[in-house]
Amino acid sequence: MRVAKHKKQLLFGGLLLGCLLLGGGYLIYREAEGASAPRDPYRVAMIVKSTDSAFWKSVFAGAAVAATEYNVELTTEGPETEDDYETQNRLVKTAVEEGADAIIFSAVDYNANAEVITEAAEEGLPIVIIDSDVNSSLVSLRIGTVNEDAGSMAAEAVLTQTEGPLRIGVVNFDENTANGQEREQGFRDRMAEEDRVESIETINVLSTTEDARRGTKELLKQHPDLNAIVTFNEWTSLGVGWAISDLGRRDDIMVTAFDSNVVSVGMLETGEVDALIVQNPYAMGYLAVENACQILSGKEPEALHIDTETTLVTRDNMYLPEYQKILFMYD
C-alpha cells in the first residue's frame, strides 16, 4: 500500500516535470519559430492628399524603406487634387473593407474627413496622422511638422530678409485643411508682434500650380504695393514663383515658399523665391510606417505627437553641405 502510494507520487511528479519541460520546450520552440519565421506582413494603407508632388513622393520613399525594414505590405494612395476629401473618404472605406491593419492618413479637410477616420478607428485600426490633422479623438499618433512653428519660421525669414514697412500677401490653399491654417496662424501670430507690418492680405486658392499662379497675379493686380508673399505648400509655392516670374517682379517681392522640388529649388537659385521652409517628408513617411508597425505589434507610442524638423533654406545656404542633404533626395 505504502509502496504503491509512493510510486504514484513519483510518477505524478515525473509527469508534472515532463509536462513542464515539454511546455518550456514548446515555448522556446515557438519563440525560436517566431523569431526566425517572418510573421504575415502587416497591411498598412497610406492615404494622403496627393500622389505626384515631390513632398509626397519623398514621404512614400521613406515609407517604402520602413515597409521593407519592418516587413509591411504598404499601399500608397491619394486623390488627384488636394481638395478632394470625398475621394479620400472613399479610399479609407475601401482600405478598411479590404482588411488593412492600420491606416496612415493626411487629411484634406479637418472636419469632412473626421467621421470616416473615427469609424475606421472604431473598427480597431490604429490611425497614424501625418502632415495634416483631422478632427478625431481616436487617432493613435500624429507625426509631422509643428505647423505654427513653421509659420513662425516663415515670418522670421521675411523679417530678416527685408527692411522697412511690410505689406504681405498670403497665398494659402483650402481653408478646410488644418495644416495650412495652422501655418498661417503661426505666421500671423509672429507678425502681430512687429510694427513693420502694415497689412496682411490672404487669398485662398486651389492647391494647384495654375490656380495659385492665377490667384497671385490677381492679388498683385489688386495690391500692387505688396513687398512680401508667403505661401504654404509645394503647389502654391510653384504658382507664386511662376506668377512672380510672369510679372518680372522677383527683385522687389520677397517670396517665402514651402517645401522643395527641383523647380522651386531652381526658383530659389534664380530669385523668384527667396526662402524655402523645407519639411522632412522622408522622415514622416518612415516614422509613420515604423510607428504603425510598432502599434500593431502591441507597443504603445511613447508620445501622441512626433515632431519632424523644418529648415529654413535660403539662396545663401542652399549649397552648404548640411542643407544639400535636406534639400536634395539621394536616389
Partner: peptide, 10 residues
C-alpha cells in the same frame, strides 16, 4: 546604403 535615412536624420 541608407544614405537618405542618414540625410533625414533617422
Amino acid at each position: 546604403p541608407q544614405q537618405q535615412l542618414i540625410f533625414a536624420g533617422l
